[in-house]
Design a protein around this nucleic acid. Sequence first.
DNA 1: TCCTTATTTTAACGTTCGTTAGAATTATAG
DNA 2: CTATAATTCTAACGAACGTTAAAATAAGGA
Lengths: 186, 186
Amino acid sequence: MTATELKARIKEVAVEHFNANGYHGTTIRNIAKDVNCSLPMIYYYYQNKKELFDEIIKNDFFNLIKKQASRLKIENVVDFYTKFIYGLNFLSKYDKQVYRLGIKVYLSFDGDEELMSLMDEWEKSILPRHSQILNPCLKNVENKTAVVRTLVHLLETMIQNIIVKNRYLAEDEIREEIAIVLKSCE
Amino acid sequence: MTATELKARIKEVAVEHFNANGYHGTTIRNIAKDVNCSLPMIYYYYQNKKELFDEIIKNDFFNLIKKQASRLKIENVVDFYTKFIYGLNFLSKYDKQVYRLGIKVYLSFDGDEELMSLMDEWEKSILPRHSQILNPCLKNVENKTAVVRTLVHLLETMIQNIIVKNRYLAEDEIREEIAIVLKSCE
DNA sequence: TCCTTATTTTAACGTTCGTTAGAATTATAG
DNA sequence: CTATAATTCTAACGAACGTTAAAATAAGGA
């Protein structure tokens, strides 16, 4: 195992542990045990426990959601959102765990205030983005902002079902629910 | 402070700490400090840390959601669900924290497998209950189950907004979103 | 080969944790 | 007033924690 491989492997195992046991429930010793290296190796590659946790959120999580957000082209909006959610089923195990950890921080169930403020900033960009996507097809709808808000709320639960509760959501079911909210959108 | 008062006060402070710092991040010493009693007093009233946590979920949380579920009468369904969600804004601080802790366990962000299986059992009762409530007004709708599922998903996010993220949701906004999903329900 | 640098280890540091033993205090009943 | 029971405390136990010092090993260029 080369040096950079080991650094990546440490983060991989750390993601598993932070996910399963939270920040406080995770110990450097247990990470080292699963990586099969000695304890101070973690400190050779990462300054301390907090830096390891922060790097996962700041780097891996935000890269993941940025990548996810720019992955699809929009033709039909129902189809767009259906494929977006459905695709989450097939994220790698690592990406799912990173995503789950991010949601945990987003809900302020873990992490500190610095990470929370990053999440707040990101959250503010959600409604405008979807507003823009839905604007063309909601031109003649009176309660436009309510529809956007409802859709975003619905998406949030479906994301949590797949990522946090680790359930499989069928494409048909996803499409049905999105279509109900976007009924006024044809 | 009488004996039973102290026992209740310990649980009250414990709820705050478990909420703010999670199970592993909470220490018996810090609880005792905030209660203003000595450390072993916690052990006088509760066998150990886990029993204290379990009691909050098993007793307080499940009592709370049972009470909430049976609080309202159904006349108009949109009104029913609107008032149900809107009422969450005005739960006591303690009840909100207990609720938040329960959701954390429900999402398996905290607690152990025993508590998780209690949550699974409870979750199974959600769809049937709302199916029954919505059945009368969805008689002539073809995708009945999808509407119920969508509503439950929507409710879940709104609950999380109020309870977990500690936001205030206005009655009008709640009603708008519920009405969008239950449009086929008049 | 030798010297320098990068990687990895053993061993320990001081701190805090959950938990308990056992004594001191307070309340209660006879 | 006294004896029993309920409550509360001081003090400590062993274990585990995050972190580091310092030595050992491996790698790579001169």
